[in-house]
């Protein structure tokens, strides 16, 4: 059972945009789609490490700003001819608040 922690208001993230959450496991990109769904992905493209949080969000996909790799935010899988995977994290919206997996607090660099 995943437990969640409140990180922000949904309105802090622009529609079709993203913000970054710093964790000890690295930066996590928190995306918000046009229809107010949220996704949390590792903020690092497997290709050349580009910040996915700065990519253009279209539908439930995001395109890396450095070399245009596109990822399905549901699975973290690269689309089209590119092969690669970005780690996704549990996240949800409740009463206008964004909650992310509490694991990200627990997992500290020892």
């Amino acid at each position: 059972m995943t437990s969640f922690v409140d990180i922000a208001s949904l309105d802090d993230i622009p529609r079709q945009g993203a913000r970054v959450v710093r964790t000890s496991a690295g930066c996590i990109a928190v995306f918000r789609t046009m229809d107010d769904r949220v996704f949390a992905l590792e903020d690092r493209c497997p290709h050349k490490g580009g910040p996915l949080s700065e990519g253009i969000v279209h539908g439930d996909r995001v395109t890396c700003p450095l070399h245009n790799w596109a990822f399905d935010m549901n699975s973290g899988q690269a689309q089209g001819a590119d092969k690669g995977h970005v780690r996704t994290y549990p996240i949800r919206v409740e009463n206008g608040r964004v909650l992310i997996s509490a694991e990200l607090i627990a997992r500290r660099a020892a």
Binding site: V5, I7, A8, D12, I13, R19, V20, V21, R22, T23, S24, C27, V30, L104, I105, A106, R108
Partner: peptide, 14 residues
């Protein structure tokens, strides 16, 4: 403030 990270969980963890 919108240019900074939304949250910093490394601090909370500490």
């Amino acid at each position: 403030p919108r240019w900074a990270p939304l949250a910093d969980l490394t601090l909370e963890a500490a």
